[in-house]
């Protein structure tokens, strides 16, 4: 009797298989596919703009908007931690902007976008999604855009590609910006391009000086817009 009580109180060890439970990253990918389908059905083309802090994402979007505003009705979702600076700058070019403040998040995820997309007005046919400035976290979270582009610039130094290979795998187009500053920065644009091609041969590389608009036509072609 004593023995019996003792063995019961021990409890039992058990292995529980959880492999079929939802993985957060897989869930994000499924949601991204749904968003892409929704946008396509509404006739909206979409570009996810990722890139380093200060690499020129917003300037490139300003230039693209200026150049494309006669051909498309453009909307932009601007992801930013707390401010509306980027949204305001893009909005100044007649683009309909929709601000997403991510709070403390370091990236946008498909869940953020799924709600934001509902708020995007019906009368646009090109949507830019400006991701949070970060070369790490956004790589794991596709948003459902037709094209993903990543922006780096020579002022961030010569190792931006080698140090962040995964985001280049994810990107259809990689922009190397601020080529006019390559010489004073002693950074080789050619080497950066080779780094992208080594890690991800399928990614198209566009070399730009966004401020002057150099390379913008090539970028439009690369994005198939």
């Amino acid at each position: 009797m004593t023995f019996h009580t003792y063995s019961v109180k021990l409890g039992m060890h058990k292995i529980v298989d959880l492999a079929s439970e939802e993985s957060l990253l897989a869930h994000n990918r499924e949601l991204a596919e749904k968003i892409n389908k929704q946008l396509k059905e509404r006739g909206i083309r979409s570009v996810d703009v990722m890139g380093a802090i200060g690499s020129g994402k917003t300037t490139i979007l300003e230039k693209l908007s200026e150049r494309l505003k006669d051909r498309y009705r453009i909307g932009a979702l601007a992801g930013d931690l707390t401010t509306t600076i980027d949204a305001d700058r893009i909005g100044a070019h007649g683009v309909k902007t929709f601000q997403i403040n991510t709070g403390k998040e370091c990236h946008l995820d498909a869940h953020f976008i799924s709600h934001a997309v509902d708020k995007v007005s019906e009368d646009i046919d090109l949507l830019f999604i400006e991701n949070v400035g970060n070369l790490i976290c956004p790589a794991d979270f596709p948003l459902g855009a037709d094209k993903r582009m990543v922006v780096i610039s020579v002022t961030e130094g010569p190792y931006m590609v080698k140090k962040h290979p995964y985001i280049f795998r994810e990107a259809d187009v990689a922009v190397i910006n601020k080529k006019d500053l390559a010489e004073p920065m002693q950074v080789s644009v050619k080497q950066l391009k080779e780094d992208v091609k080594t890690i991800s041969p399928g990614t198209r590389v566009v070399i730009m000086c966004a401020r002057t608009g150099e390379g913008i036509e090539e970028l439009i072609l690369a994005l198939e817009l």
């Binding site: 039992m12 060890h13 058990k14 292995i15 529980v16 298989d17 959880l18 993985s23 990253l25 897989a26």
Partner: peptide
């Protein structure tokens, strides 16, 4: 992916 394969529990 990042998943939990399994867990060992005490019931």
């Amino acid at each position: 992916d990042c998943i939990v394969r399994d867990i060992e529990i005490e019931t």
